[in-house]
Amino acid sequence: MSESHAAPDQQIFIVDDDEALRDSLVWMLESSGYRVAAFDSAEAFLAAWSDLMAGCLVLDVRMPGMSGLELFEELGRRRCTLPVIFITGHGDVPMAVAALKKGAADFIEKPFADRDMLRLVAQCLEQERASRGKRRQEADTARRLEHLTQREREVLDLIIAGKLNKQIADVLGISIKTVEVHRARVMEKMGAHSLAELVQHVVTVEPAAPTR
């Protein structure tokens, strides 16, 4: 079996009422080095769900009681960020395609090869890591923006709008030297090492930053 592609805090959550398939998946994934938690119903997973969960969810489309699709929709309402891989039977493909359009990561038809499931899991874990990293960066940028003074914020908005120091000085009625001081403080407070990095961070958080 291949090595795990998971970060230490990531886990694979399996929700399937088919005990044989569930046990087979647990064995296969654990043999590949993954941490796995299995549930025999959507209701059981929902009872255990926490927004601190990291990793991905392998979910059967059809189950007694709450279906996989209903669980997926409920998790969406709860703003769950776990990528979801649906397990489908032949007749369930249209439902799985509909789920993809609603944000599911992928689906796999039964019977499937271990290598195909492992490939999808690795892709989802990479996607989830990147998504969490992006959210952390956005939260950090938002926090840093809150620590700017009003004048620093005005200078930042004009930098984002592409204004040169002289233009910023003219708009704000201050000297170019003062603009340079504010600009340096903005770069320091925002933790940016270049103008491109500064712009990239801010427009990610505030795509419609005000311009002058």
Rank of each mutant, 00 (worst) to 15 (best):
S2D: 14
H5K: 12
H5D: 09
A7R: 07
A7P: 01
A7K: 14
P8K: 12
D9I: 10
Q11M: 12
F13D: 00
D17N: 09
E19S: 13
A20Q: 15
R22I: 02
L25D: 06
L29S: 01
E30A: 11
E43W: 07
L46P: 05
A47E: 14
A47D: 15
A48K: 12
W49F: 12
S50Y: 12
S50A: 08
D51S: 11
L52F: 13
A54S: 15
G55I: 06
G55N: 05
C56I: 02
L57Q: 00
V58G: 00
D60N: 08
V61N: 00
V61L: 06
S67H: 02
L69Y: 00
E70K: 05
F72C: 00
R77E: 07
R78C: 06
R78A: 12
T81Q: 09
L82E: 01
P83Y: 07
V84N: 00
I87A: 00
H90D: 04
M95S: 03
M95H: 01
M95F: 04
V97I: 10
A98C: 03
A98W: 08
L100Q: 10
K101T: 08
G103A: 13
G103E: 08
A104Y: 01
A105M: 13
E109R: 09
K110M: 05
P111G: 08
A113G: 04
M117I: 07
L118D: 02
R119K: 10
R119V: 05
V121W: 02
L125P: 06
E126K: 07
Q127A: 09
Q127G: 04
A130P: 01
R132L: 05
A139R: 15
D140V: 05
T141P: 04
A142E: 13
R143Y: 14
H147R: 15
I159L: 15
I160S: 08
I160E: 06
I160Q: 09
A161K: 05
K163E: 08
L164V: 13
L164Y: 04
N165W: 06
N165T: 14
K166T: 14
K166F: 12
Q167F: 14
Q167P: 08
A169Y: 06
V171P: 00
G173L: 04
I174P: 01
I174G: 02
I176Q: 07
T178W: 10
H182I: 07
V186T: 08
V186K: 00
E188S: 11
G191K: 12
G191C: 14
A192Q: 05
H193C: 08
H193K: 15
A196R: 15
L198D: 08
V199R: 03
Q200N: 06
H201C: 07
V203R: 10
V205F: 03
V205M: 03
V205I: 09
E206S: 10
E206R: 15
P207N: 10
A208G: 06
A208R: 11
P210A: 15
T211H: 09
R212Y: 12
